[in-house]
Design a protein around this nucleic acid. Structure first.
Ligand SMILES: [Mg+2]
Length: 359
DNA sequence: ATTCTCACG
DNA sequence: ACGTACGTGAGAATA
């Protein structure tokens, strides 16, 4: 923090977006871009990432990471520990619009994993004596569901051939052999794959991966030419959403979309993106819920000591008695894999470790 | 109570 | 011309 004050030539509250915005964009005259809802300067990561070349910005990003981890997790979770030494979250079944569950008091579905410091926090979640942590998580479940719902021939083939979907996508979009795909190309293809599920635009993709809007537009165009079934699905789902006023998952769960008849263009566009995303995210949630119930029941029927302790949207975590590891792995594997039969296989990654942190 | 930001999938 | 990626929950600042 003192480095930041030195570089700014003044003292201020770094946690105040308003004060920070004024320091960066008024005092230091850095190039400003986005404004937030109340007309102030945005100081969010995506803005600051593009200003990283300024040493003060780089330090602010680090400060943000550390203070988030400290306040929400190091400090926040400490006060959530019960007298039994464990943290008991509440899982809400009727909150989300897509069919996912959510977790509160505290939220255990957003335990850090992406940064080094974050992983140290995750590592603090450990099993009881005599137990270990066994997890199963779906590999690329949302893209597999997209391939299935859209019945896209090329995407289905890529999954049936057990290819790395991002590398495979890169090869096709850039018209090169699989072996020649570079890291950068795979990264771009991955961003497009994710973006498609959210109803991407060329502008947003360009912002996300730092390429020109024109290039981003070309990636999307080439993508949809190769995955033409996905393109047709995107058009079809929006059309049926407008006709019916709702979309549905593979199990028939509906999401109503009043946004589609809004007089405001931006709200209608949002409705279209949701029409595209909700069946995918919601179907994944359906598949997970079915698997979860089967796993729970099998643990119970077999009178195992191991217990299901956490669900994180595409992952189940079981605190496993050390004499039940192989049995629990098998229970996770078959119940998750066979939860629902898609046009592509469902692949499960199994892991076992002595904390919530893998590896 | 609301806004902004950021942790996760 | 428009405006710009889906779903959550929580902490700090601000009003
Ligand atoms: Mg996964």
């Amino acid at each position: 923090a003192s480095d930041i004050f030195d570089l700014a030539g003044m003292t201020f509250n770094i946690n105040s977006p308003k004060q920070l915005g004024n320091v960066l964009f008024e005092e230091l005259k850095l190039p400003k871009s986005k404004t937030n809802a109340s007309g102030g300067y945005s100081t969010s990561v995506d803005v600051l990432e593009k200003l990283k070349m300024y040493p003060i910005v780089d330090k602010i990003l680090y400060y943000r990471t550390v203070s988030k981890l400290y306040s929400t997790y190091a400090q926040g979770l400490l006060s959530a520990i019960s007298s039994d030494g464990r943290i008991h979250s509440k899982f809400k079944q009727t909150v989300t619009a897509t069919g996912r569950i959510s977790s509160t008091d505290p939220n255990l579905q957003n335990i850090p994993i992406r940064t080094e410091i974050g992983r140290k926090i995750r590592k603090a979640f450990i099993p009881e004596e005599g137990f270990t942590i066994v997890s199963g998580d779906y590999s690329q479940i949302e893209l597999r569901i997209l391939a299935h719902i859209a019945q896209d021939k090329n995407m289905i083939k890529a999954f049936l051939d057990n290819e790395d979907i991002h590398t495979s996508t890169a090869a096709k979009v850039f018209s090169i052999p699989l072996q020649e795909v570079t890291k950068e190309q795979r990264y771009a293809a991955k961003a497009v794959n994710f973006g498609i599920i959210y109803g991407i635009s060329d502008y947003s993709l360009s912002q996300d991966i730092n390429v020109s809007v024109k290039n981003a537009g070309k990636y999307i165009k080439d993508y949809l030419e190769h995955y033409s079934g996905v393109k047709e699905y995107m058009e079809r789902i929006v059309k049926t959403a407008i006709e019916n006023g709702y979309v549905k998952t593979i199990y028939g769960r509906r999401r109503y979309l009043p946004e589609l008849s809004s007089p405001k263009h931006s709200v209608r566009e949002f409705g279209k993106r949701v029409a595209l995303n909700a069946p995918i995210q919601g179907s994944a949630a359906d598949i997970m819920k079915i698997a979860m119930i089967k796993v729970y029941n099998e643990l119970k029927t077999k009178k195992l000591k191991s217990r299901l302790i956490l669900q994180v949207h595409d992952e189940l975590v079981i605190e496993t008695s050390i004499d039940e590891i192989e049995e629990v792995k098998s229970i996770l594997l078959h119940n998750m894999r066979d939860s629902f039969e898609l046009s592509v296989p469902l692949e499960i990654d199994l892991s076992q470790q002595n904390s919530l942190l893998k590896g």
